[in-house]
Design a protein around this nucleic acid. Sequence first.
DNA 1: TACTTTTGCTAAAACGTTTTAGCAAAATTT
DNA 2: AAATTTTGCTAAAACGTTTTAGCAAAAGTA
Lengths: 342, 342
Amino acid sequence: MPPKKASIQDIADRVGVSKALVSFVLNGKGKEHRISEEMSKKVLDVARDMNYKPNQIAKWLRSGKTQTIGLIIADISNPFFGKLGREIEREASKKGYKIVFCSSDENIEKSARQLEMLMKSHVDGFIISPPPGSSAQIEALAKTKIPYVLVDRYFPEIESNYVVIDNFDAAYKATDYLIKKGYRRIAFLTVNDELITMHNRTEGYLGALNDAGLLPEHDLVYKLPFSHDKTDVNQAIMKLTSGERKMDALLFSSSKIGLMGLECIMEMGFNIPGDFALVSFDDPDFYKVCYSPVSAIAQPLAEMAGKAVRILTDEIETGKLSNPSKKVILKSNFIARKSTGS
Amino acid sequence: MPPKKASIQDIADRVGVSKALVSFVLNGKGKEHRISEEMSKKVLDVARDMNYKPNQIAKWLRSGKTQTIGLIIADISNPFFGKLGREIEREASKKGYKIVFCSSDENIEKSARQLEMLMKSHVDGFIISPPPGSSAQIEALAKTKIPYVLVDRYFPEIESNYVVIDNFDAAYKATDYLIKKGYRRIAFLTVNDELITMHNRTEGYLGALNDAGLLPEHDLVYKLPFSHDKTDVNQAIMKLTSGERKMDALLFSSSKIGLMGLECIMEMGFNIPGDFALVSFDDPDFYKVCYSPVSAIAQPLAEMAGKAVRILTDEIETGKLSNPSKKVILKSNFIARKSTGS
DNA sequence: TACTTTTGCTAAAACGTTTTAGCAAAATTT
DNA sequence: AAATTTTGCTAAAACGTTTTAGCAAAAGTA
């Protein structure tokens, strides 16, 4: 019933020429292959008339390329990754690539399955924010010589393309801002340092304290397990707000922690910034309309996406992996809001 | 350099049999085609030994199917759609389908381009939340006989599969809740009724007022242009909160309006629920940690995704479009929070 | 006139599958 | 012993492209 699609063969038959000729003309390689003007015209007319649409699958089979990028985001429930994914789709589409979208939900097995599935699907390249502990997967991927770019995170032991922000600098500046505002007992609520991203944030925080002559007090750094829930965050905040040496400011190392943290803080009835100040990594839209609007470290998502897609498509199109790898480190943007005493 | 992949032909050559035999065995159709046990075993061994991985593109070409679903979401910056997309990906992946992800950003031209691009890419089917005014595109899609399911929205004039919530009921219940709480001047901030979804929400709101014997006062219904920004919302709230007949409760028809609305309300310094109560359609995570936690109409996202994917994959796999179309209408879930006086 | 170059096109292979139709030998039935 | 059935396999087409190699006729050169 769906009116059988016309193929190159059909056009060739109707014009009475070979498939090759039709293919040449349709690909604009007429002159190059010395096809006469009149013949070209005839072919184009017939193609239009038959409403010819090339079969991409056949092209993919010939070329081995699918004009598709596999995107494995770490956690779609985190708005940071959602927005990043959107920007990546936008950039890719500009360049004629489509995005097959997966969220590994920070789960190694899931990410392995997704990688495998995307490789089977012959994506031309990958953009990945790998879950902690997945470095072996990335190494395996590197062996295949399929282009890939890591975003938000990377593994120092693997020589690879990546696009991240300067996490040390971001944490340093945020901490420094709090210090300059007069806060002295600045706490840092983060996850364990398994990811270099998180490690660098911790280092930046400690660095700022050090440079200000404030001895980092280790009871002010609270490292959650990588997979944490609200109970964990609740416990952390209880601890940081009790005893006689309470914190007077709190830095969240991600908006995921931030969201849970805010929920706990509200439930406990704290007053922000009265009881303590708040700063968070990432800048989801809602930080503007929170309980107390949260000062934030905003990441340049569009730029990250642009760079990542650029590096990847360059490799895909030249057929050469960058050597040395491309390592892009972007600056973040601190936004002061009411939660730091505005 | 990447060690040339083995094809069925390679296996056939090595074993000294035909491609057909290898294909039969590899697809588990050995007995069916009366291939001897020993031969089967030999083929499987060699396949494993050569690390054979079937070329999916070739399969796609043969079958005309790509095991891919095109997803065109209306607006990825709206967390509602972000979450819905995630659930759809999850469901699809369970069934062995991958998702090519697009956001039309409520833009007709963009959605047209994306549809075209996805059709060229031979997706097996579509899940779409169409922007207003795109009904012609959907009709054109229907003509192609490619399976599709609409989500969150549909066009009453087009006979198609869709999965939505009962928007009348949801708005009715929320309004009724406010009435029972004693609010009398309940405003509704929404967009124009171009989309049936929005139309039904308006009707539900009006219906509840009517049934309670409260004459709907038309200065309490404020319809924004479909593409609105914070300035528009600001104006609306100014209007609804001024004069001597101010509103005492406000219902947002989407979380997108809700986010902007909250920002305005904060800036204007209103006290929620002191100055007026608040309810919103959709339930993004942050409603829990807002300025004043917002009572919400939560949509059953996982269920929507499940149904949509189910309907679509059924059509894909049976090769028959449902007749009559499948129309799924789900119930939503009202969550009371502090913004309605808890 | 004989040789070379240019013009305009085609045949066929290649990409890697799946599936239909059918063949030869072996086994079974009459 | 002849006819039939079963067994185990293969050849070839089909999906729709792109590209390499090359052929025949026309045009140009010596």
